[in-house]
Amino acid sequence: MPASKPPSNILIVGGGIAGVSTAYYLSIHPLRSPQTRITLVEGTKIAAAASGYSGGFLAKDWHGSATASLSAMSFELHKSLAEEFGGKEKWGYRTVDTLSIETDATRKSKKPAPLPWLPAGLVHSSRPLGGHSTTAQVHPRLFTTFFSEKFLSQPSTSLILGTATSLSTTPSPSSSSGEPSPRSVGITTPEGEQKEVEADVVVIAAGPWTGKLAEQLLGPKVGGRLGVQGHRAHSVVLKTKEDLSATCLFTSMTLEDGSAGEPEVYARPDGTTYICGAGDDEPLPPTAAEVKPSPSAITKLHAQAQALSPVFTSAEGVEVIAEQACFLPIADRGRPLVGKVRGVEGVYVGSGLSCWGITQGPGTGKVLSELILEGKAKSADISKLAP
C-alpha cells in the first residue's frame, strides 16, 4: 500500500537510462505529492557511460524467467514512448529484423547472401532471431538525454553534477524492524565543493559503479550484498556511403587469417552502423570520464567490419564517426538488482542490467516509481530481482 506519508525528498544516483527513467516516472506519477522534490545526481554528464555508448538494441522475448516480465513490459514501453513523443525522429526508434549469420572467409559458400550489402560467397549460414514485432533499436544517448530533459521540465526537479560520497541516516519510526532511514546524502561537485542534500528516499542506479557506491553509502554489511561490477566492451560507429537495411546482425566470423570474432552489427536509421565486441577485464576506473578504449580492440573491430563487407572499407568511402568503450554493469548474482534494499528503510536499487540495460531501463524506472510511491511493483513481476 502507499506510504501514509509521501516522501519529501527523493534522490536518484546515476544519470544513465535506469536512473533517468526512474526520475522521469517518479516525476509524472499521479501519487507524487506536489511538495516532493526529486533530485538526480550524476558525476559527469547524462548518459556518460553505457547508456551513451551502447548499441541500443531492444529484444522483447530473449530473456530468462527472472527478467522476462520486466523485459517484455519495457520493450512495449519503448514502443509507446516513441509513439507519444516522436521517438522515430528524436532518438532513432525503429523495429528491425535480426539475423544470426556465420561467415568464413577461408572457404567459399554456395549460399546466397541474406542481405544485399553482404558479399557473395561469404555467409555459410543465416537464420532469423527476431522480427519487427520482437526486436527494435534506439540511439541510447539521445533517448536518455531526451527523458532527462522531460524529467527536468516537471516541477520541483533538479540535476546536480557531482559524486555521492556519504549517506546520513536516522532511526525510522515507521519501520517495525528498526531499520534506519536516509536523512541526507553528501555530494562532492566536480569543483570539489561539498554539499549535503536532504533525502528520505535514495535510489542507487550507478551502473557498474553501483557495488562500490553501495558499500560506501550503506557499509559492507548492507551495501556489500549489492555487488555489481563492470566489464569493458568496445565499439566503433561507421558512416557508410549507402544506407543499410533495418537489420541487426549477430555474427560468428572466421577471417582469412583464421582468426575468429563475434561482432554485433546494428545499422541505424541515421546512416551509421554501430559495431561492438572485443570485451576484456580491464579494471573499472573511478569515473565514466576516465573510460578509455583499447587500441588493439578497436583495430580488431575495424578488421572484422572490413572482412564482413566492403561497405566498411576506406575504398568504399567509409567514415569513422567514433571509436569507444564502455563498462557493462554485471551483477555478482547473475541477474539484475531491482527493488528495495534490505537493512535500511527508503533505499532502492536499479542496476546490474548487463547488456540489456537499454531494453530494461524504462521498465526498471517505472517499477521503481511504483515501489516508492505505491508500495508495490504493478507493471511487471520483479520478484526474482529483489536485491
Rank of each mutant, 00 (worst) to 15 (best):
I330V: 11
V201R: 03
S21A: 15
P171Q: 04
G346Y: 00
Y53F: 15
S126A: 13
K60F: 04
P286V: 11
K378P: 03
E84F: 06
A50Q: 12
T144P: 04
E179D: 15
S33E: 13
T189W: 00
G186F: 01
A113V: 04
D270A: 15
K5H: 15
D280P: 04
L368W: 03
Y24F: 15
L328W: 11
D61H: 13
T273P: 11
E76Y: 05
T103A: 07
T287M: 05
K376P: 08
A82R: 02
T247P: 02
T22V: 06
T188D: 00
S54H: 02
A136K: 01
L238C: 10
S176L: 13
G365F: 03
A3D: 08
E374T: 04
I358V: 15
A246I: 10
P310A: 12
A380W: 00
G64I: 06
A260P: 05
F151S: 06
S74W: 02
P30D: 10
Y25V: 01
I275E: 03
A3W: 04
A120G: 03
S156W: 01
P295D: 07
Q194S: 15
P220S: 14
E84K: 14
S175V: 09
P286A: 14
I46L: 07
K110L: 01
L238W: 08
A233P: 02
T67R: 03
